[in-house]
């Protein structure tokens, strides 16, 4: 943390907020733990315990939390890394109040809220939502078993990350909030806004928020080009066939 406080402008409320959250979540609990990467306050890694009494019981799931530079005004994104059968891995999912616009994130929620909501949301039906998986209970249970041996290149073996201390109990207010939060992936049908050269806000913040984006962007583009070529080829083929047919009928006449 010492390193981080040198690197960021601690006067900036967003930075101050994340440092407070890091402090609040510093001690691992039985249900969850989360901490920022050594060199980046805006990317965290988290571990959660599969909710008891569900197909995920006994499972341990690890992932990344990407915080927008506007945090806490804008919601964090969550990416699961451990295969779990409920959410696609390596896919950004975001939280919103069920049935409402994703913009209903509230600045008074925190990373803890997001993690508790994620745990609470895991056993809910996938219902074909983007980023959701509808694996059978058997598959989920088998993934839960395997998950404990999963290891993160940053954090090491994830089964060592949680502790046996119970987390701070969920308050009444949190409980009502948690019941309303839903998670879903981002719709990839819509074109992603081009990364614009942002003017540095207040103080420099490292640009590591979406390291996987350029690769997927490039793949998307490649697919688009291939599809366009294919469609073009089909058109030419049809046109030529039609021409040949037309010429043949004309000759017959």
């Amino acid at each position: 943390m010492a390193e981080i406080s040198e690197k960021y402008n601690t006067k900036c409320p967003g930075v101050k907020r994340l440092m407070r959250e890091a402090l609040e979540l510093a001690e691992a609990t039985e249900e969850y733990c989360a901490r920022p990467l050594e060199d980046n306050l805006f990317e965290w890694h988290f571990t959660v315990q599969g909710p008891k009494g569900t197909d995920f019981e006994g499972g341990i799931y690890h992932g990344r939390i990407l915080l927008p530079k506007e945090y806490p005004m804008h919601p964090p994104h969550i990416i699961l890394l451990t295969p779990n059968g409920r959410f696609e891995v390596n896919k950004k999912i975001c939280l919103s109040i069920s049935g409402h616009h994703p913009e209903t994130w509230q600045p008074s929620w925190s990373i803890r809220t997001a993690l508790l909501a994620l745990i609470a949301f895991m056993p809910t039906p996938a219902e074909g939502t983007i980023g959701s998986l509808d694996y059978t209970p058997a598959e989920r249970k088998s993934l839960a078993k395997k998950s404990v041996n999963w290891s993160c290149p940053h954090c090491g073996e994830i089964k060592t990350l949680l502790s046996s201390t119970a987390a701070k109990p969920i308050t009444e207010e949190e409980k009502t909030v948690l019941n309303q939060i839903a998670f879903k992936g981002e719709d990839e049908q819509t074109p992603k806004p081009q990364p614009q050269p942002e003017e540095a806000p207040q103080e420099a913040e490292p640009q590591v928020l979406e390291s996987s984006e350029p690769i997927t962007g490039f793949l998307d583009q490649l697919t688009e080009i291939l599809v366009a070529l294919l469609v073009g080829a089909i058109c030419i083929f049809v046109y030529r066939r039609w021409n040949a047919y037309y010429a043949a009928t004309e000759a017959e006449l």
């Binding site: 907020r17 407070r20 609040e24 806490p72 600045p107 008074s108 929620w109 925190s110 308050t171 207010e173």
Partner: peptide, 11 residues
């Protein structure tokens, strides 16, 4: 009223 003390304090 039940707002999270931690974040309310921050604001």
């Amino acid at each position: 009223l039940g707002f999270s003390q931690f974040t309310v304090e921050d604001f």
